[in-house]
Structures are given as structure tokens and as C-alpha cells.
């Protein structure tokens, strides 16, 4: 198994710019948390660097400002806050969309809903995304357009049997145009994922045994995510197992399960902003 650290680094990658964007995105999510309580902050902060890297560094721009030939599907639908703020940043969603999040006036909810701008599939129930990714990758290959399908799974989600059906299908169909990440923040509703299923770890060897190329990275190192993907062999589907911290960036949220869904109060919000600014 290769790790990202042994892969070549793409010299063009601007890690400082990525860190600045991620700080801005976390700040935007915290701002939204003061208007609406229905947020999954912890799981959005654990995959911030990964989703930023996919949208801002990996997906190819569309011709003449059009749609990218590549696709991103948020398999861990509850992480979509980070997707929304990036889509706003890219001009695909509007400030008005995010301001109306989870209100009767708006169209965005706590899970991605197909039909909204930039949302390529409805997710929320876990274990659905990867099979849809396989179907999308198949369609791209069948047409000869060969768009790359990117996705992010949660580590709780890889406990779903349906995820492993899709893992098998991707390798059996030799879908080399799939790039997936597991956001391995080691937390699910009832505790540590590694305590729920100790023999499941390390994850990467399991995906490798099912015919995937794998990489293990620090999921908060944007350069590592970029290097893992750009340095792949391209002969197999790729699964990047990203070690992450739930609630990353705000000390009192990190690894504390209640921040799966809670919103900070005013004092907590102020502290969170101070901590982000200091980073």
C-alpha cells in the first residue's frame, strides 16, 4: 500500500491558498449556525479539506465556464454543509440560497437534494452513494466522455453492506474513473467506529483486497489529498482513506460526538471564530 507521503507532490498545488479557503468555509458554516440550528457541523469540518480539494483543485473546469466534465456526489449526505458553502463560493448556489437554508422559503436542507444547483444526487440515507457513483462512472465510460466521479463516504457508511456491493462492482467493472474518499473521523452516533467494528481497521487493506487502489492520508492536509489523487496509477478505482478529526478546527468540537448535530451558542460561536482566526 502506498501512502500519499511517498507519492510525488504536485508542485502546482498551493497549500496556503487551500488552507485559507478552508478557514473561510468553516467560518461561513459557523455563521450559518447562528441562524439555523439544523447543521451537521462536526461531519462537515472533518471533510472540509477533502471536499475543497475535490472542487477547487481536482475537478476540471468546464469549457467556457460551463459544467465540469467531472462529477462530485456527497455520499455522506450529512456533510453537505461544506458542499453548500463551496458551491456558493463557486457561484453555483447563491447567498440567498444559503440564507434560506432549512427554512420554508429556501430549497436547501440538511441533506443534498437532486435538482438543486450543483447537487448531482440525493443522499442522506447512508450506503446509497457508491452504487450511484458506479452507475455514473459506467455511463461516462459508455459514452466515451470519461468524466471522473468523485465521492466522499463516511466511516460509519462503510459499515453498510450495500457499500461493499458497490465496492465489488467498481473493481469488477474496472471503473478507473472513480475517485472516492473515506472521511475516517472515527465517530458515529454511538461511539468510535473503530470500537464498533475493531477488526475493520485498517480500512485500506479491505478496499485493496476488493481490487481498489488505495492511499492513506492525513485528511486535513490538502496537499496530501491532492497528491494521492494526482499520483494514482489510474488502473483501478481509487479509495483514499483519510484520517480526520470530527469538528476539526474548533477545540471543543473536536472528537466530541454531540457536535455531530449541535449548533454553538453565542459564546461558543465567538470562541470558535477566535480559534479559527488564530490558525
Amino acid at each position: 500500500m502506498k501512502t500519499a507521503m511517498t507519492r510525488r507532490r504536485d508542485n502546482a498545488f498551493d497549500a496556503a491558498a487551500a488552507r485559507a479557503r478552508c478557514k473561510r468555509y468553516r467560518r461561513r458554516i459557523l455563521d450559518m449556525s447562528q441562524n439555523v440550528t439544523a447543521l451537521h457541523i462536526g461531519g462537515a469540518f472533518s471533510c472540509t479539506e477533502i471536499v475543497d480539494c475535490i472542487y477547487n483543485e481536482l475537478m476540471r473546469p468546464g469549457v467556457r465556464g460551463g459544467k465540469s466534465p467531472d462529477t462530485f456526489l456527497m455520499s455522506k449526505g450529512h456533510g453537505c454543509m461544506i458542499q453548500y458553502v463551496i458551491l456558493e463560493d463557486l457561484g453555483i448556489l447563491t447567498k440567498a440560497d444559503l440564507d434560506a437554508y432549512c427554512t420554508p422559503k429556501g430549497r436547501l436542507g440538511t441533506h443534498p437534494d437532486y435538482g438543486n444547483p450543483g447537487i448531482e444526487a440525493s443522499t442522506g440515507a447512508l450506503g446509497h452513494g457508491l452504487s450511484m457513483v458506479v452507475g455514473m462512472a459506467l455511463a461516462e465510460r459508455g459514452r466515451g466522455t470519461n468524466g471522473i466521479i468523485y465521492t466522499v463516504l463516511s466511516d460509519g457508511e462503510v459499515q453498510e453492506g450495500s457499500t461493499w456491493e458497490a465496492v465489488l462492482m467498481a473493481s469488477s467493472l474496472k471503473l478507473t474513473n472513480i475517485v472516492a474518499f473515506v472521511d475516517n473521523n472515527d465517530l458515529q452516533s454511538l461511539g468510535r467506529t473503530s470500537q464498533t467494528h475493531p477488526s475493520f481497521y485498517p480500512l485500506a487493506t479491505k478496499f485493496e483486497a476488493f481490487g481498489w487502489e488505495t492511499a492513506e492520508i492525513d485528511g486535513h492536509d490538502p496537499a496530501a489529498a491532492h497528491a494521492a489523487v494526482t499520483g494514482r496509477s489510474g488502473t483501478k478505482p481509487l479509495m483514499v482513506c483519510a484520517k480526520t478529526v470530527k469538528g476539526k478546527g474548533v477545540s471543543y468540537m473536536e472528537n466530541v460526538p454531540v457536535w455531530h448535530y449541535r449548533s454553538p451558542n453565542k459564546a461558543e460561536y465567538a470562541q470558535a471564530l477566535r480559534e479559527l482566526e488564530a490558525q
Binding site: 446509497h128 450511484m132 458506479v134 452507475g135 455511463a139 459514452r143
Partner: peptide, 15 residues
């Protein structure tokens, strides 16, 4: 389960 999900993915891409 994968059979249905794959069909959905194909349809999301216009198949």
C-alpha cells in the same frame, strides 16, 4: 441493492 443504485447512477447521467 447495487443493481438499483447503479441504475440510478446511469439515469442521473441520462441513460
Amino acid at each position: 441493492q447495487s443493481m438499483i443504485g447503479i441504475c440510478a447512477g446511469l439515469a442521473l447521467k441520462g441513460c
